[in-house]
Amino acid sequence: MAHSVARSSQIMSKNEISSVFSRFLRFWRSVHKVSQEELAYRLDSSPRHISRLENGSSRPSEAMVTEIGEALSLGSRDRNHLLLAAGFAPANEGRDFNSPELKWLRKAMIMNLRALDPYPTSVVDGAANLLMVNRGWVSFYSHVVEDEELNNVSNLYDFIFDRQGAGNIISDWEDTLSAILMSIQQTALFTNDETTKATLERLQQYPSVPEDWQQRAARTEPMASFKVQIPIDGTLKRFFSVGTMAGALGPNAFASEPRLSIFTLYPEDDSFDFDALLDESKTHPLLFY
């Protein structure tokens, strides 16, 4: 009986996935005015198979989904939505943040960073490589590390995991590092991306990583923020580091390139004056204004 229930749940799960894919397939056929017969011809398949895909009685392979996307001339965003609808990971097509076609995005990020001054803010990519920082970020972290070391910081994760760097000021750092590692681990499992797996392997080598990080992370609900504390004028001050996504819209926004996140520090004490820390003389290679 239990086996029967489990099998029924499994079938229901497959049917639910197929129904999502079916809706997407019918939608895009109608948008491009392609009949089932024509699509079958383009795919070297049969109208009966296309019909089964659309009524949910058959589930496509990943290769079939990709071929359908090509046959319907879908763009990267819509091909990824089709893959997700069929239960597959989206295709990750890297985009260079510094490429000429993304000049408008870089300008928008600079305006965002400037608007958030004096709150320390950074823009990072999907691998947490620092892309841009604002003056508040440079001024604040100058209280943590020497200017020369700060100028060489290129990755937010490395900066956090290094107990000689920002890792010295992370509250509950064992749980925070564990949660970050688990988020990378989940991404690696989902995408099987070699860069993500390399990042996970590199970060695990830091002495600051708890041996039981997987168990710690399993007990910690993921959040887009963590706490920071630092002595200012002899008094320990506490802050929240809050992360927001700045990417594409839609179901696959988390996988769309470039995957940008914006991290900003906010004071726990509303009376704290970040302006007092702002130093106009400070420079940094990633400060663009």
Rank of each mutant, 00 (worst) to 15 (best):
W213L: 07
E54C: 07
N112T: 15
N80R: 01
T235W: 02
M223Y: 11
P100W: 01
R42D: 04
S51Y: 08
T199N: 06
V5N: 09
L287H: 07
T195P: 00
D193C: 14
E194K: 06
L203T: 02
S183H: 13
Q204W: 00
S35C: 05
T199S: 07
T195A: 10
R42A: 05
E211T: 13
N92H: 12
A188D: 15
V228W: 15
P118I: 03
T191G: 00
D147E: 11
E146L: 02
S9G: 10
G136M: 03
Q186F: 09
F190G: 05
F140R: 00
D44T: 05
V133F: 08
L203S: 03
H32K: 07
L102W: 11
L249S: 14
R48K: 13
L265T: 04
N129D: 15
R79C: 06
T66P: 00
G243F: 12
E268K: 07
M111I: 01
I68G: 10
W137S: 09
A255M: 05
S8Y: 00
V138I: 06
P47Y: 06
L82R: 05
G75L: 01
E93W: 06
M182I: 04
K197I: 08
V65Y: 12
G167M: 02
S99Q: 11
E16V: 07
E148T: 14
S99A: 15
K237E: 07
Q229K: 05
A166Q: 13
R42S: 07
T191Y: 00
L189S: 15
E70F: 15
I160D: 01
